[in-house]
């Protein structure tokens, strides 16, 4: 099997997997980072969203052979030394999650949005988050959390 050395959350990870293995399954089964979720396998739901060089991509549709030396960041790589990012804090303050399964992907998409657009409008949020499905329909609070992280605000109450 081909051997790849991936850069995941700032650390080199050597993996022996088939070239067509989606990054999703390399992260989950080989490296053991299970925060990135499987939802559809067709880049339709966004549950597997991670960053490569800061861009939000779908790990289920990205073969490991295409990752190269790209810097992969997963949900586990956002907080540094146990300190949540302002967006992660906003997610907790607003009690966004219901079942929680899609939220890794939602947070990764929202993190990429704020990195490129620190003060997004509702329309910007719609455009950036349209690829992430939430079956529990937590959309109103996702929107609130993104706005309050952008404005540096604390939670609702």
């Amino acid at each position: 099997m081909p051997k790849y050395t991936l850069n995941v959350n700032g650390e080199p990870k050597a993996v022996d997997v088939d070239a067509d293995t989606p990054l999703l399954w390399v992260l989950r089964d080989t490296i053991g980072l299970v925060g990135t979720k499987y939802g559809c396998g067709m880049s339709l739901c966004g549950a597997c969203t991670v960053h490569i060089n800061g861009q939000a991509i779908r790990a289920c549709g990205t073969p490991v052979s295409a990752v190269g030396s790209g810097k992969v960041v997963t949900i586990e790589g956002l907080a540094k030394n146990g300190e949540l990012t302002p967006l992660q804090k906003a997610w907790c303050d607003h009690d966004v999650a219901q079942c929680g399964y899609c939220q890794s992907g939602q947070i990764m998409s929202a993190t990429a949005l704020l990195a490129s657009n620190p003060k997004p409008t509702d329309a910007d949020i719609d455009a950036a988050m349209a690829g992430n499905i939430c079956r529990c329909a937590t959309y109103p609070r996702i929107r609130l959390a993104i706005h309050s992280a952008a404005e540096g605000k604390k939670g609702v109450e």
């Binding site: 586990e76 999650a97 609702v156």
Partner: peptide, 23 residues
């Protein structure tokens, strides 16, 4: 009162383990 979910931090950091995440 308004009480946030007990697993909120785990969910926001990818540490909450669902069925599919069992290792």
């Amino acid at each position: 009162k308004r009480i946030g979910g007990v697993d909120n931090i785990k969910i926001a950091t990818g540490a909450a383990l669902f069925g599919i995440d069992q290792q």
